[in-house]
Amino acid sequence: MSYAYLFKYIIIGDTGVGKSCLLLQFTDKRFQPVHDLTIGVEFGARMITIDGKQIKLQIWDTAGQEAFRSITRSYYRGAAGALLVYDITRRDTFNHLTTWLEDARQHSNSNMVIMLIGNKSDLESRREVKKEEGEAFAREHGLIFMETSAKTAANVEEAFINTAKEIYEKIQEGVFDINNEANGIKIGPQHSPTNTSLPLSGSGSSQGGGCC
């Protein structure tokens, strides 16, 4: 299981919005309606490919309840990406986003890529938060946005992978100091820093070209 990079993610958001289910759908490709509530922090990992490179995602799924905040905060640090999740069928989970965002910004490194996720898009009939509202919030706070359904798996892959792409681009741009693990990025075991730096800059330009 060699990888070029390891990205550390954190999933945050109110309790019951489907954080653990998103993770399970992403790592195991299954939906488990009856899922133990998360106490503290749980984990998942999966390998993805970006730009021909193996990237390992190490995902920290946190408990949503306020009481666990002191514990989960300690996991913000050292995360390269965050999925901030709300439930489109519960307005209060959307209303709490600001608090979550403040918390995340305050305790994480400033370059952390944050993806806003409106989950449970399969429950259209019970929708309380319009998609536009989510988009607006994301725009306002400089986040990427997506609506997902952990149940149907709609957009779940994309949510995780797009976040990884964003991080990857930031690496190419030199925004992240990849040698500092506190940024939530780790270079794979077989890639020594000196080796990776050269091909990286090369692939960076090619990646940039691809995007355009």
């Binding site: 503290g40 922090v41 514990i71």
Partner: peptide
């Protein structure tokens, strides 16, 4: 030992 959180809170029940 933050990873022991659940152990302590739930007294290893889980």
């Amino acid at each position: 030992l933050l990873f022991c959180y659940r152990w302590i809170l739930l007294e290893l029940k889980r």
